[in-house]
Design a protein around this nucleic acid. Structure first.
Lengths: 166, 166
DNA sequence: TTGTACTTTCAATTATTTCCGAAAGGTAAA
DNA sequence: TTTACCTTTCGGAAATAATTGAAAGTACAA
């Protein structure tokens, strides 16, 4: 396969995968583009390469920076800003997990904690309390497990799961 | 807190959480409603309780059945269908993980495998190959880890992570 | 076979999300 | 200052997704 073909396919696919991940398609494409770029790129480069508007490029670049997946670089003597991606995949994975945890898990834990102390003892209320208790158990567990995963060093994941999968 | 208030709040919140999970809000609400129902409910009950249309209720109930989170029940002598949710939370978690894995991870593995054999050896091509290799490493690992998790029994998760989190 | 009590489908509507591009905002050099 | 060059904001257009409601489909009992 030719590089140019592979590159296009990768960027397109990363966009599709991103949207399955609940991530804006363009954001994922910019990420893909920067991931495989050996040098940092300007907003202009990104716009041209992906054929998107200035506003769109700007918005999604900033979102990527906010996620910690992309960094700004200022080249001496140039006014333009350049962007490059975090290339340490373990770091990327950790940052994505952190984001998703915040978005997907933490609101759940929060709501569950607000739903305590139901007074009634009707069958409905009892069932409700039971379900809540179960969900709490799992979400608390998932929450702390992910924390541990995210705060662990590279080798833990690689090492542990290498063994797990033989 | 009163049961009725807690119930409403739970259903609403489950809807919001669901949409953060990339799951249709109504589908999540129906799931919440059935989760805390001590008895199975008819489509009619669901429509009334959530104030949604017949079509909507039907579609999302079937989707929930497809996920394996809800089952149909036929009461003898009645023509109506009744629905009840899977209440074993570990089972629910497994089924959700399975679904998300299929949607989020497997397309990625598939694409990556199609992107092999780049011929060129320019810096761009080399960077590309390197990134691909890294991503493959992680996605393959995540894939098999989740498989293992999903195929494991209840106690593995509870047991292992109980220890992990002290 | 017809009537009844449901379930399912689907075209049209409505809501939500994403994207564009022009205008406004900043900043550094002249 | 003013100019030149970038970045950011934002209202509305365009694309997607969810929802409705009515019509069509199905199965059972009489």
């Amino acid at each position: 396969m030719k590089f140019a073909e592979g590159k296009d396919k990768f960027i397109q696919s990363w966009g599709v995968i991103g949207s399955n991940w609940g991530i804006n398609r363009t954001m994922a494409q910019i990420h893909a583009l920067l991931l495989i770029a050996p040098e940092s790129l300007s907003a202009e480069d990104v716009m041209q390469d992906l054929q998107i508007s200035r506003g769109n490029a700007n918005m999604n670049l900033r979102e990527l920076i906010d996620w910690g997946l992309v960094y700004k670089e200022l080249k001496p003597g140039e006014r333009k800003e350049y962007f490059y991606a975090e290339k340490d995949m373990w770091d990327v994975v950790k940052k994505v997990i952190k984001r998703r945890k915040k978005k997907e898990l933490e609101p759940m834990v929060k709501v569950l904690n607000e739903l305590d102390n139901i007074e009634e003892t009707t069958p409905e209320a009892e069932e409700f309390k039971k379900v809540l208790k179960d969900i709490k158990l799992f979400s608390a567990k998932a929450d702390s497990t992910l924390d541990r995963l995210v705060n662990s060093e590279n080798n833990w994941f690689v090492g542990t799961f290498m063994k797990m999968i033989k």
